[in-house]
Design a protein around this nucleic acid. Structure first.
Lengths: 211, 211
DNA sequence: TGTACATCAGTGAACGCGCGTTCACTGATGTAC
DNA sequence: TGTACATCAGTGAACGCGCGTTCACTGATGTAC
């Protein structure tokens, strides 16, 4: 018997060594993740299903997460980070502050359409679906929002936009969120091509800001 | 015993007369409605809860609706009509086509914030939560959307806007939906005053359309 | 080097719950003769 | 006018299901002496 073999024939994962209990935590998160992507259904992410996905029994989950809400929160947190990285990368592709804002908006929509079920949880779910300590206050302080405001501020500094940066940021967020969430909620609606829709809305909004 | 007495002491409704079975249908819809408003929670609208709300046993529901989805659909249909009336009234308050469009947008947001749980079902839910025959195609053909496109068309006719009316309509819808759904999904977020937010986004978008 | 013991990751079985839906029925209302 | 009968709105009890969570436990891993 090779001690290095990681997965027994049963499909059950090997028990973690002492002090390595946290390994399971990651596998649980990955399993939840996988379920969400494969089924595209938030309700499919049940404690039981996640446990099975991680090759473990349901009670094991509770060794790592206080309850289901906390598990879902951990998944969310991961995705807020992914979203933020995605947006920052897009925004950094140009030096023109206004163009950067546009790229950020387009990247936002793309993220939502690429991960609709995640987007649903992050931005379309009920407030009580997120744990208390992951409330809106925290969202406000999230990196993504600060980065958006900063992007707007750069336009103000460059003299290409005027107004209250926070209000402008809220407005831009509303616009891209509107497109994203409508496309997610009504995928079979006879929309114009996504690109066209996004560009139109974003262009019009930024045109209006210039005025 | 007065035959006119409608509610027996038990709280149970009186059985409908022959041929008046449809009366219960309305009471079921009203009960579902009431549940939705009082609890503000879509999940609270269970067959059992609706039945109790209507003073009737659960199986009775099935005399009037094929299944739960169809019941929820009927509730939705009612609200699409309410929304459309609401928007038409607002849009009719002025003769200026552009101002009319703005009023329509403001009314849309107000409707959403006044009936958040209904708005959720109509515009933020999963596609499979609505019955097949109430799909997006039908939504596209709904009066509200046609009325919006018509409102845009009036602006084109008046020469105050240019462009593709459908695309402009999609854009305006995205914008007001963005504000509405963000406010509903993140009610505790430190938003600016609602009026200010709505006016800003709507003004900017319409400004951009003028350019 | 060997043995008794503490630690702790994970298990197995069960809890109570509320759900959508089905099925055989009851009993009041209306109709035919 | 009276009676047998058909209709049909609504009932009562039960079905099977999947869920989140709890609880006493097991057994491998590491440690102290």
């Amino acid at each position: 018997v090779t001690p290095a073999s990681k997965a027994p024939a049963t499909g059950r994962r090997q028990r973690a060594r002492r002090g390595e209990g946290d390994l399971l935590r990651d596998e649980i998160l990955e399993a939840a993740e996988r379920l969400l992507i494969e089924t595209g259904n938030r309700d499919a992410v049940s404690i039981r299903a996640v446990a099975e996905g991680a090759g473990v029994t349901p009670p094991s989950i509770y060794l790592h997460f206080a309850d289901k809400t906390e598990l879902l929160f951990a998944v969310c947190e991961k995705h807020f980070e992914v979203l933020d990285r995605h947006l920052e990368e897009a925004a950094a592709r140009t030096d023109d502050p206004l163009e950067s804002l546009r790229l950020r908006g387009q990247a936002y929509v793309r993220f939502g359409l690429d991960h609709p079920e995640h987007y649903r949880i992050l931005f379309m779910g009920k407030p009580d679906d997120t744990p208390d300590y992951f409330g809106d206050e925290r969202l406000r302080q999230s990196a993504s929002f600060d980065h958006l405001v900063a992007g707007v501020q750069r336009c103000l500094d460059a003299g290409v936009l005027t107004g209250d940066p926070t209000l402008i940021a809220f407005g831009l967020w509303s616009v891209v969120h509107g497109v994203t969430s409508l496309l997610i909620a009504k995928p079979d609606f006879p929309w114009p091509p996504v690109e066209q829709l996004v560009d139109h809305v974003l262009n019009v909004q930024m045109e209006g800001l210039l005025g």
